[in-house]
Write a protein that binds this DNA or RNA. Sequence first.
DNA 1: GTGGCTGCAAAATGTTTGCACGGAT
DNA 2: ATCCGTGCAAACATTTTGCAGCCAC
Lengths: 138, 138
Amino acid sequence: METRNTIQKQTILQAVKQLANHPTAEQVYEQVVQRLPNISRATVYRNLSSMAERGMLRRIGVPGGADHYDHTLEDHHHILCSECGALEDIWMELPTQHLQQVAQSQSQFAIEGCQLVFYGRCPACQTKSEDAEIPHLH
Amino acid sequence: METRNTIQKQTILQAVKQLANHPTAEQVYEQVVQRLPNISRATVYRNLSSMAERGMLRRIGVPGGADHYDHTLEDHHHILCSECGALEDIWMELPTQHLQQVAQSQSQFAIEGCQLVFYGRCPACQTKSEDAEIPHLH
DNA sequence: GTGGCTGCAAAATGTTTGCACGGAT
DNA sequence: ATCCGTGCAAACATTTTGCAGCCAC
């Protein structure tokens, strides 16, 4: 399984690093298409997937939304805006080993890892709903 | 916002409880359609969503796969098969308050909650790959 | 009787795939 | 010269939506 070093691959990886904060495939495409106007979304999807599999990037799957890609490889967690889907890093130590032991004692699964995700409303969405708050008239 | 008590709603809720282990909308549909042959998938999706919002069910979003619905309301976690997407419960205490405090100190988000998900291979998929293991010939 | 709920079909969303061609090795 | 990677379009999976008619209240 050889890996050819195409301009598309280089540009995609560069874009994820440049966008820095968890772009989706679509956002990567929009960035890359400026340099390579003929690139196809399929190429972006294919390369992001394969880079994630090779461990060059981390894929962050978001239920009900597009996957995000993280250029930060170190072990960390994320917080997701329940309103707009914005993603941010959370750095904290978790007794992962211990948690996985407890989980292992309850299931027959061969446990590979675990992920902690926080939910909340991002600053922008908080501001938005403050604006929408209309005083009640009784 | 009144809630009418239709046969569809009753049957859908019953189906989720009966199927017991985290059915997807499609699986609920397949169950319900046996009793109500004319029911539409849209009705299943709409009702599962609204019941989840009302707290009658819990929605478990799975990145890259269909959402699952859980009739168990108590706070617990899940393990997801990285191969076939099978879902199982994991019961453990987590210092949620503490984790959220730490997260809060790092972000401007208004944190609403957090979720711990384990990944691994379910017993069935483990067996499957054992079968596929062919001795290497050097 | 009214308007929330349903069934249907179509749209929307995010991603994958089949195929012929072109370029990296 | 290979044959992997690309671009394109179509397929795919899941979910949402617009709308006309129906039925629980």
